[in-house]
């Protein structure tokens, strides 16, 4: 393979994830990258809400250079919408994940809990390990879990603790991942309540939680459960492109709830199309 091929491919991957300079975009808006996550560390539950990309929330690149120059590294970074606020929570990792492949990996990970406490794991070159499981991994959607050891930064001597959690990212905005799944985040603690302070047990229970989370997301493709979503966004997320040939164009920008309530023939036709599994992805 020539040296230029990975660079071209990486550029394409970045382009599919949006402009890195969109850090001021509204993370709740449809069509904007959006991520959500929940984790436990040192007995604390840290949950990310309205998280947005700051400098590439998902990317593929060369870990040695820190830039997107190859296809062998997967990275994701979540930050609260107001990262400069004291409560801003940052979580990031990057690990060696071939594009389009799911599995369990090791890699670098860091967490700031918003109160000045940091936790760091290094996949290589140190004694801590952190495993990631990507349950879903496409160019527009990533969902998985992680668990392992992290250093409690600032402790002396340096203390190792356990961290575990789930994460989800979508290029179709928060509406694509926050349908009826918030309660699933709460259930994560139930999954792990009986786990001992062992990284493998944590990993198992959080993977189960990630499965629930993914299932919840899949179920949210029922039109009746997404009444606040814009039709065009819902179609991109849940329906085959060919439905657009049959769909009244003026209703693409309408919310599903308004289409459902519509008494005119176009709204009725659109509502039936949105509910027909013939067009489901």
């Amino acid at each position: 393979m020539s040296p230029t091929q990975p660079l071209i491919a990486a550029t394409a991957a970045l382009a599919s994830c949006g402009d890195p300079d969109d850090r001021n975009a509204d993370p709740a808006a449809a069509g904007t990258e959006c991520a959500s996550w929940s984790l436990y560390v040192e007995g604390k539950h840290i949950r990310g809400d309205q998280i947005k990309r700051t400098k590439g929330s998902i990317y593929y690149g060369d870990v040695t250079s820190g830039q997107a120059e190859g296809l062998d590294v997967f990275g994701i970074e979540f930050r609260n919408a107001t990262p400069t606020e004291p409560s801003g929570v940052l979580s990031s990792f990057r690990t060696e994940v071939p594009v389009g492949v799911t599995g369990t990996y090791r890699g670098y990970f860091s967490i700031q809990d918003g109160n000045g406490q940091s936790y760091v794991a290094e996949g290589s070159g140190s004694s801590s390990t952190l495993n990631f499981t990507l349950n879903e991994h496409t160019s527009t959607y990533v969902m998985g879990s992680f668990a392992g050891e992290v250093f409690v930064m600032g402790s002396s001597p340096l203390v190792l603790d356990y961290v575990s959690g789930v994460f989800e990212w979508s290029s179709h905005g928060c509406a694509a991942i926050w349908q009826d799944c918030e309660s699933v985040y709460d259930s994560c603690s139930n999954h792990c309540s009986s786990a001992s302070s062992d990284a493998l047990e944590y990993r198992g229970c959080w993977t189960a939680c990630a499965d629930d989370y993914g299932l919840c997301t899949a179920q949210s493709c029922l039109a009746n459960e997404n009444l606040d979503e814009i039709a065009d966004t819902f179609i991109s997320r849940c329906r085959q492109a060919k439905i657009r040939q049959e769909f009244p164009s003026q209703l693409l920008t309408s919310r599903l709830g308004d289409i459902k309530k519509g008494k005119d023939a176009d709204s009725k036709k659109a509502w039936k199309l949105l509910n027909d599994n013939r067009f489901a992805k």
Partner: peptide
Amino acid sequence: PHGFENKFGDRITW
């Protein structure tokens, strides 16, 4: 019969 335009400008008639 009921008709509308799709996003490609085609006229759809049911």
